[in-house]
C-alpha cells in the first residue's frame, strides 16, 4: 500500500481515537456510544500498520483491492451505527410516550360545574382550555 495512504489512514484513525477519548472526558459522549467508534478506529489502525493482515482479509473475503475491503468494513460500520441509533430512537420514543401519558394523568380535568371527588383540585385546572394555541 502506498505510504501516503498509510499515513492518511493512520492519522485518521488516531484522530478518531483522540476525539472519542476527549468527548468522553468532557462527558459529551457516553461511554456506551464510544464502543463502536473505538472499535472502528482500532481496526483501521491495525490494518494500516499491519498491511499483510489487510491483504489476508481481502483475499479471504474474495475482494480484489485492499481499498474495497476498507470501504466494505467502513460501510458495514455505518450501517451498524445507524441501526443502533434506530434502536435508541425507538427506546426514546417509548419513554417519551410514557412521560406524555404521565403528564396527562397528573391533572385530569373534571367536568364543568362539578367538584373533584378525590381531593381538592387546583383552581386553574378547571379553567377553560386554549392557552396552548
Amino acid at each position: 500500500m502506498d505510504i501516503r495512504i498509510r499515513i492518511l489512514t493512520i492519522g485518521g484513525a488516531v484522530c478518531i481515537l483522540l476525539m472519542v477519548v476527549e468527548l468522553v472526558r468532557r462527558r459529551k459522549l457516553k461511554e456506551e456510544y464510544s464502543v463502536l467508534w473505538v472499535f472502528t478506529a482500532v481496526f483501521i489502525l491495525l490494518v494500516s500498520i499491519w498491511f499483510s493482515l489487510l491483504a489476508k482479509v481481502t483475499h479471504a473475503i474474495g475482494a480484489i483491492s485492499p481499498a474495497s475491503t476498507l470501504f466494505f468494513f467502513g460501510l458495514l460500520f455505518s450501517l451498524v451505527l445507524l441501526l443502533h441509533f434506530s434502536v435508541r430512537i425507538s427506546s426514546l420514543e417509548r419513554r417519551l410516550t410514557a412521560l406524555v401519558q404521565e403528564v396527562g394523568l397528573m391533572n385530569v380535568e373534571e367536568p364543568d360545574g362539578e367538584q373533584a371527588d378525590d381531593g381538592p383540585q387546583p383552581a386553574h385546572v378547571a379553567e377553560p382550555a386554549g392557552v396552548d394555541r
Binding site: 401519558q101 396527562g104 380535568e109 382550555a129
Partner: peptide, 28 residues
C-alpha cells in the same frame, strides 16, 4: 377546543400535551 367542549358536555378530560396517536390515547 375538544377538551373544553367535552368538559362542558359533562365528561372528565385527560389531556395529552402532544399529539401521540390513537393507541397512546387509548392506553392513557
Amino acid at each position: 377546543d375538544t377538551a373544553a367542549v367535552a368538559r362542558h358536555a359533562g365528561a372528565r378530560v385527560l389531556r395529552l400535551p402532544v399529539n401521540s396517536g390513537y393507541g397512546v390515547a387509548l392506553q392513557s
